[in-house]
């Protein structure tokens, strides 16, 4: 198996997800009292930075198997947008408003983008090993 050196997309993705999960736990642990938003905003901001950094570092990889990446990521994105939508509905149903709603919604956006990216990346990175395999002859 010929593995190329690739940026640590999975590790960074997990760190980003861990940050928004930590922010979500922080906010939900204070309910229904007033929640100081500062820590949650810092965690969300760090998570978004990791997401952007991950996207940029992956975009800079030469000859990455983008066709396979998007073939998988688009369907995963659809599934996670539906899941995120369901969670968002739950927030609105519970009358969550204002800054807390904004932080939670942006966290869901990070979640709905980063998970499909991780799935697409994992599939596409190993798909490149396929290039070392001769095509079956008809």
């Amino acid at each position: 198996m010929n593995e190329r050196r690739l940026p640590p997309v999975t590790q960074i993705g997990m760190a980003s997800l861990a940050l928004i999960v930590a922010g979500g736990i922080y906010l939900s642990a204070h309910l229904p009292r007033h929640v100081p938003l500062g820590p949650a905003i810092v965690l969300l901001g760090a998570s978004i930075l990791l997401l952007v950094g991950n996207l940029v570092s992956l975009a800079l990889v030469p000859d990455f198997h983008w066709r396979r990446f998007f073939a998988v990521a688009k369907w995963t994105l659809l599934a996670y947008v539906i899941i995120a939508g369901l969670i968002e509905y739950s927030f609105l149903r519970d009358h969550i408003r204002g800054g807390v709603l904004v932080v939670l919604t942006l966290s869901l956006v990070v979640f709905a983008v980063h998970v499909p990216m991780l799935v697409g990346f994992t599939v596409a990175r190993y798909d490149e090993s396929d290039q070392t395999v001769p095509a079956p002859t008809a």
């Binding site: 997800l17 979500g24 396979r68 994992t122």
Partner: peptide
């Protein structure tokens, strides 16, 4: 639940899909 979510979403599910794709 948060720890389980990060492991499942970041490692397990991508591996599952990648195995099936392979």
């Amino acid at each position: 639940v948060g720890v389980m979510a990060v492991i499942a979403l970041g490692l397990l599910e991508p591996a599952n899909i990648a195995v099936l794709t392979e």
